[in-house]
Each structure stands twice: as C-alpha cells, then as structure tokens.
Design a protein around this nucleic acid. Structure first.
Lengths: 147, 147
DNA sequence: GCCAAGTGGTTTCATTTCTTACTAAATTCG
DNA sequence: CGAATTTAGTAAGAAATGAAACCACTTGGC
C-alpha cells in the first residue's frame, strides 16, 4: 500500500506527526519517572532556572494558556514541588517558586530531558539541530503572529 | 523578562510549539471554510488521491488511531462526502470512497492547503523545506519506532 | 469442518482539554 | 477620589480525546 503523496508530503502533517511522536515518548518517560505531565515539567523548567514568577508570566514563558498553567501549578503545589508566596506588587497574583524538594527533582529532571533530546534527535548532527531550532522558531513566530 | 534558556532551547518544546501554532492556524481555516476538522481533512486527502480504502488502511496512511479514523469517517459520511461500499474480501470492513460532492470539495481543499503551506512556511526556501521534510520524517520514524 | 485466536470496526466510559463565565484586585480617567 | 474598565486567577460546563470492552467476521491449526 503506497502512502498518499498529497498527505505524506504536506509539511504541516509531517510536523504534527513528528511532534506528537516526540511528545508521546517524552510524556511517557516523565510520567513513569516523576509522575509529571509535560505542562508541569515546563513550569518547573522555567522556575528552576529563572527564579520566581507569577502565573501570568509563566503563560508567556511557556506559551501555554492560563488555564493550563493554573492546573500545572495547582498540581505542582499539591506535590510540594512549588510554593506560592504573596506578591507584594499585585494582590491578585502570587509568586511561585520551587521548594527544596522541587529543586531536587528539577536537578534530576533536566539531565533526563537532555538525554532524551539527544536520543530522539540523534539522527541529526549539531549543525542540523541548530538549523532545526532556528527554523522552528521562525515558523512558530510567524504562525503565532498571524492569529 | 528573559525567556528561560532551559525550556526555550529544548528541541522537543520548540517542535511542539511550532506544530501547535501551525495546526491551529490550519484548523481554523478548514473549520470556517469547509466545516472540516483536521482528522477529516486527512482522510479526504488520502481517499482523494489513492482511491478506496478500509478504515484499517486509513489508520496506517494517516497515522491516526482507529477511533479517530472511525469518528472522522462517520462525520464525513454524515456530510455525504464519502460512502461505504461492502468489502467483498472481508465482511467486517467497508471500502470508503469519495462521493462526487466529496470529490468536488477535495478539489477545493487541496489548493487551500497548499496555499496555507506556502504562507506558513514562506520563511524557508525550497531547499530548506525539502531538508525540513527529510528531518521530520527521520525524527518521526525514530520516535515512533521506539514506542 | 470446527474451535481458538486474532482482527476490523464500533461503542462506552473515563480523562483531558477548551471555552466561558466569574471574582477580586488593579488601573484608567473624568 | 470614585466609577468604569481591564487584568490575574479560578471555577464550572461543554467538547474532544483516549483506553478498554465488545461484537462480528476471518484466519490458522488440528
């Protein structure tokens, strides 16, 4: 059975298939090792290397919508990986920060993430990876701006 | 506010963000113009250029799971875009085929799809697009095989 | 031929995700 | 200042997605 050329050569389709396959592999791994979803991991990755943020800031930094960020934060808070301190500058929001346990988990997660990145993209050399990042940033910026 | 380097340089994250942005733009367009979802469009794209198929075959050709294919087919059938004929070779399945109306819509959809592809990826020249397709196929094949 | 195992397709149910609405605090502007 | 508007966060209902069970038919072995 031949693949349909119309579909199989359609770039958005290829992009979606590749992205889903990669995300699925990563999600499985985070789930089994740390009981974390991808959204939760993203929040931890940001808080882990740039300190305290409000949910509002996290929506910008992770490009997820505010409901997804809120759910991820609630879950991380239940798991004692982050804590919320009142925000002196704005009474509506809180500043979210990793707890010591959260920090510890963060330190374990990042190497796993980088290892998976290496494994999943090992068909590409360093130059190709850099090019791919560049291309994906351009495409995303363009597609998002034309909303 | 600086983006978090850990997250913002993570290839799977960039891939996911780009893919979602592109898919969202396309989904909006198909929805408003043809009242079709992406899954439905994929099925039509395959039936449109490679004739009759069973749902089983469509799951392979579109890389969607059988429930998604079944739902897409049911919806397309309700919209009179495809019809199901009994499959002489296997009494459990049917052969799905575009109706004349389905064919007509298909002829309108494909130019729109190609136009959107051009627009969304116009930051890339032809060589870059070919490379990107190649890379995405490799990544997807690798990630899917390690399931 | 007949039984066991497997497969295509469908349904059902639980889970996830998105949309919309709402609350409370902050900002704008007369 | 004070009313009107905007914004951060949350909650609740609706819709989409996924997993498991199920039915009907086919296939493979005896």
């Amino acid at each position: 059975m031949k693949p349909s050329p119309q579909l199989a050569d359609f770039l958005p389709y290829l992009l979606s298939v590749a992205s889903n396959a990669v995300s699925d592999r990563i999600a499985e791994r985070y789930q089994e090792r740390f009981d974390l979803k991808i959204a939760e991991w993203r929040v931890m990755a940001v808080l882990g290397d740039s300190g305290s943020h409000t949910q509002r800031e996290l929506t910008e930094l992770t490009l997820m919508d505010k409901v997804a960020v809120n759910r991820a934060c609630k879950s991380l808070s239940d798991k004692k990986f982050i804590l919320r301190r009142p925000n002196a500058d704005d009474g509506r929001s809180h500043l979210l920060k990793l707890t010591p346990e959260g920090r510890e988990t963060f330190e374990q997660i990042m190497p796993l993430a980088l290892q998976m990145e290496t494994r999943l993209f090992d068909a590409l050399d360093d130059r190709e990876k850099a090019q791919l990042k560049d291309v994906l940033r351009k495409i995303a910026a363009h597609a998002r701006s034309s909303r």
